[in-house]
Every structure is written in structure tokens, then in C-alpha cells.
Design a binder for these strands. Structure first.
Lengths: 337, 337
DNA sequence: TTGAAAGCGCTAACAA
DNA sequence: TTGTTAGCGCTTTCAA
């Protein structure tokens, strides 16, 4: 079997408690003893058994992250922010790819109940608010990204979907468009709903009638955006601009337009959302809305870790991060490429 | 404190051993007892403490995955394959984003030594082969994706980079190109090296002189591909085709060409690699090489789990999966769009 | 088929 | 500043 703390203690000529103190960087060890113990640790090539430590210390230094699809750039970037912050605080991250299925989300939440993880971060989850608040009421640590939870114990990291969606639509109106289609994502996703809300509000504010026929759903992916645009184009209702609730669907619109001989931005203005890296590299460059994805992940992870360690417990609970409209060639004729 | 196994045992009127047997689905429990225990578990809303289980059973049911960047679609898709297979076998996945830094890889490898994870999967790692083989010699479970390790204890999942790169170049030669540039990825990555090797071999087989000036590195990302193409174009060495070692860099080439007024495929043929989802949606559609990324991850995870559970120990160790050249409009004038 | 009891390797009172 | 020791909650012999 492996070397254990007892063996190190024997070699160093101290008690196991002292070795444990050295391992955990306690102040209560004389420099001389510390060095002696460290030498024994190195000599025996000792690694403390993490599982024993977890059991005894009642924490696993692990955070679970439930995400609907890790192969979506938007989510991956948030996860990256979480992972890097966690790493710097000596926490590990368990990735839970729920594939947009609520039962899988629920299944992963058990990791919290059985103490596999110290905390769970939910990214735009499907489960009901009460599932989350019940957990928190039982003293489990849960944070949420992309949705607001009305409960003082739940840190949230959010963008203002309504606000930036209004900006997008206002921009299109400013460019002279009066008939603007909207591509929504998963029907049950909050982001879809709120972005639609912003779209409708902006129309109202500019006295442009809302036409439900100009709304189609594209499930947040390229294929869905492509198909949704084809449906819109098939309706023969004239429109000159599309606001797509994310960049992936907007790329599908590019493909559909190319096929139909519709030139962007001359015949059709297109704006996406999320500022996927590729938006800068396609032609024409895609107008979009930058979301500080990495920051949202990192901020929330930090808050959650602080909360678990009861630092800054009274600090801010809800992080509303700012989005920024980026106008590029797909919605502005005056811009090259 | 939480309910523990002892409490359940008391309520059910049995010993803790019996409860443990029910929990672990042992055969050695009568149906009647099983039901009685299950009722107590449900009544008390009991969840077994995973950390205690880990310590006692000497396994954590957790696999670590070291990846250089989780926000690269190619890697994310592999991780997805691993995660889903692991989930179906009741394993969890810890994600380790090493940011392409060898010291971070080394740091994450400690999770194996301190028993935080039962096994580690390395995706195109930077660390030397001996680091891996040493670990395996000490009986740690390690699997590798995207690199071959000469050691009977290391499962590997690979594509034949040389082979498909030769196919790509042969395709370009068949299309009439004689001056073909190559965009390599990170200089120290094996994928870069092998894809370059295939490129050079194909040229040689077709008696086309190899010109080192036509090689540029683009670090596997859009920005790098864009800059690399600009450098190539600046050299004023004529070339009519580019083979980019991945799709992201090839997208950078699209952007650079758009800026320089070079029309793909008429003035410049472009082929990428990895079959990123976006290749089907940009204009012209990008020729690329499909890699069964998800399968590579899933196969390796399955093998590693089987190995830990000593099933099928003698089965295949190295999985060479087939790649497939997909010719689209970016390299074939006869194809629309 | 069930139960008693040892102990996984560590941390954290408490005592010295 | 250091040591002694009692568990953390579970699994797994071994015995019945």
C-alpha cells in the first residue's frame, strides 16, 4: 500500500498531528519541525489521501457545474471561467453535461446530497426555482448563471437580456428597418423568452406593430436557424432584418441566405447574440452582442467559494454584468466586410 | 447532521451491514429485508455519504480529463463522449483545463496520486511519454487521446493524422494544384507535426518539391490562421491552395482572403480539418476531414473503466479510428456553395 | 441470510 | 509548539 501519514510521522520523528499541520500549512509549527517533516514527505514521495481528508474535513473542495451542452462555445467559456477561478482557490470542477434534459439535471443534483461536491453551479437550468431554493434551505450551496432566483442564499450571475435585445432592435430600426424577424432559441429557455421580450418592447416603443408571424424558433443551433429562416422566407411576408437570439442560429441564417441568393446586409440585415469568436471571421462580419461569459463564470465561482468559507458573506449576491452591442457589416451597409 | 446509515439501520430494525448491502445491490439480501430497508431509506430521505464510501472502498468513481482548452469544439466534443460514457457507468468527470501549459498538466496529474480520481485521461498532452508510463508502472490508470504511447498498460485513442493529411493533399493535387501551402498548429503539438508529415509525404509521392516557405504556424485558432495567411500572401510566392491543420485556422484564412479580395475556391482552394459544425454553414462550405471525436472519447472512457473493473482486460488497447475527407465548395469548383 | 466489529487515512479537539 | 486520541460514515471480512 501507499505511504501514509503515519509512516511520514515515524520517519520525521513527530506525531501524525504535526505532519497534518505541515500539510495544511498551519502556523502552529516551528520552522525546524516543518523542514524536518517536509524532508520526510519528499523522501517518501508521500501524497496525502484526498478521500480520507474529505471524509474527516467534511468537504471535497469540488464544485459541480451543470451545463446543457459543453460543446456550445457560450457555455464552454463560462465553464472555463469557473474552472480557472476554482483552480486558483484549490477547488476542482466536476462537469455535468445534462444535454438539455431536466431529469439529467435532477440526477446530477444528487452529487450535492451525497456530498460528492461542496457546491453546485447551474448554468441556465431547466429545473424549477423551488428545486433550487429547497436545496439552499437545506444548507446546500448552489449558484445560478443566466437566471435570477429570488432567494437571499443563491448567488446569481446574469446579463440583462431584455435590455440588450431592445438595443439590438433599436439599432435595426435606426438603420431603417421596419419589418424585423426574431429567431428564438429553445422554447422553454429563459434566455429565449427574455430576448423575445426585449424585441417586443422595442417594437412597441417605436410604434412598430408586433407580428407574430415574424417569430420562429431555432433551438439555438445552426441547423435550427437555417430551417427557421427558410420557414420565414417561405411565408412571403416581407421583412428586411433578422435578430437571432444567438450567433449559432444567425450563422444558419447566413447559410440560408447564401442558398436563396439573399445578400447580407443589402437585402437582409442580421444580428446575432453572444459574440462567438467566429462572428469576426465570417463574411460579412456578424453584428452581435458581447457577453462577458468568462467573467460571469469566474465571478459566480468566486462568490460561491467565498460564501462557503464565510468570507465576505454580506457582499453582493446578484451580478448583473453588462453586455455590449457590437455593430459589424451584417447590419450596417456603411461598414466594409 | 444528516441521516446516516446507522439511523436507517435502526429504523429498519437491521444492522448497518444489511443496509449497506441494500445500497450496493448485493444479492445476499432477502427480498423482504430489502423492501423494509428501502422503506426506511425513503422515509428518512437518506443519501449515503459518498466521501465515506470512497475512503472505505478505495475508489472515487471519478475520472479526470486533462484538456488544453475546453472552449475548442474539437476537445469539447471528445469530453462530451467521455462524460456521457462515464455517466452511463456511474462515473463522474473532473475537467482539467490545462490551458496548453505543461506545468498545469503536471499539477492536475496529482489528482491521481492523491486518489481524488481513479483514472486520468489526457487529450493530446504536452507532458513527455515517460511521465505517463511512470504513472502506469505505479499502477495508476491513465488513458491518452490523440497520441500513441508505447506501453501495454496505456489505452490510446487515435486518428491517423499522416494518412488523412496525405488524402487532403492528394485531393488538392487532383484538383490541379501544384503549389500548396500548409498551416500548422501549436509548434509542439503532435497533431501539428503529424499533419505536416502527411503533407510532406504526399508532395513527395507526387513529385512536387517541398517548399518550406509555404509552411506557417497558426496556433490552431482563427486569429493565428488569419495572420499566417497574411504572412504567406505577403511573401509573393505563388500558391493556389491551403491545407490548414484545423478548421479554426481555415476560417481565419477565409477572413484574410475576404480582406485581400481573394475568392475561394476560384483563386484559392482551402481545406481544413476536424469537421467543426460551422464548416457546413459558411460560404463557401468548407472542405474538411471528419474526426469521430465523440466516439474517440467514449471508446477510451469505456476501455479505461473496463480495465479498472478488470473486465475484458485483454481486449484491444489502441483504437485507431477512421477519419473521412469531406470535399465541399472551398476546394472544388464543381460544387455549388 | 444476517450481524458484529475492524478499520480506510486523515483532522481536530484537547491535553501537555 | 507538539502529541494523543476519538471519530468522520461507510464497506467488508468473519462468524453465526
Amino acid at each position: 500500500m501507499d505511504t501514509k501519514i503515519k509512516d511520514v510521522a515515524k520517519l520525521a520523528g513527530v506525531s501524525v498531528a504535526t505532519v497534518s499541520r505541515v500539510l495544511n500549512e498551519s502556523e502552529l509549527v516551528s520552522e525546524k519541525t516543518r523542514r524536518k517533516v517536509q524532508e520526510a514527505i519528499d523522501a517518501m514521495n508521500y501524497y496525502p489521501n484526498a478521500t480520507a481528508k474529505y471524509l474527516r474535513s467534511r468537504r471535497t473542495m469540488t464544485i459541480g457545474v451543470i451545463v446543457s451542452d459543453i460543446n456550445v462555445s457560450y457555455y464552454a467559456e463560462i465553464v472555463k471561467g469557473i474552472e480557472n477561478m476554482a483552480y486558483s482557490r484549490k477547488y476542482k470542477v466536476i462537469i455535468c453535461d445534462a444535454q438539455n434534459q431536466m431529469d439529467k439535471e435532477l440526477g446530477y443534483l444528487e452529487l450535492l446530497l451525497n456530498r460528492t461536491v461542496d457546491a453546485m453551479i447551474l448554468i441556465t437550468p431547466l429545473v424549477a426555482d423551488e428545486v433550487i431554493t429547497d436545496l439552499v434551505d437545506k444548507d446546500f450551496n448552489v449558484g445560478v448563471i443566466g437566471r435570477y432566483i429570488e432567494h437571499p442564499g443563491v448567488p446569481c450571475s446574469l446579463t440583462d437580456n431584455v435590455k440588450f435585445s431592445k438595443e439590438v432592435v433599436k439599432h435595426l430600426i435606426d438603420m431603417g428597418h421596419r419589418s424585423i424577424a426574431f429567431l428564438s432559441g429553445y422554447p422553454d429557455a429563459l434566455d429565449s423568452y427574455e430576448r423575445l421580450e426585449g424585441y417586443i418592447k422595442a417594437l412597441r416603443e417605436h410604434q412598430i406593430p408586433f407580428r407574430p408571424e415574424l417569430i420562429e424558433s431555432g433551438n439555438f443551433n445552426e441547423e435550427g436557424g437555417y430551417a427557421a429562416f427558410k420557414r420565414l422566407a417561405g411565408k412571403e411576408i416581407p421583412f428586411t432584418a433578422v435578430y437571432s437570439a444567438n450567433d449559432e442560429m444567425a450563422l444558419g441564417v447566413y447559410a440560408a441566405c447564401a442558398e436563396l441568393g439573399i445578400v447580407i446586409p443589402n437585402d437582409m440585415a442580421v444580428v446575432g447574440a453572444d459574440n462567438n469568436r467566429i462572428t469576426k471571421y465570417i463574411t460579412p462580419k456578424m453584428s452581435t452582442v458581447d457577453q462577458p461569459k468568462y467573467t460571469m463564470g469566474a465571478l459566480l465561482a468566486e462568490k460561491l467559494i467565498d460564501q462557503m468559507n464565510e468570507n465576505k458573506f454580506e457582499s453582493q449576491r446578484v451580478f448583473k454584468v453588462d453586455s455590449e452591442l457590437i455593430v459589424r457589416g451584417s447590419s450596417d451597409l456603411a461598414i466594409n466586410g
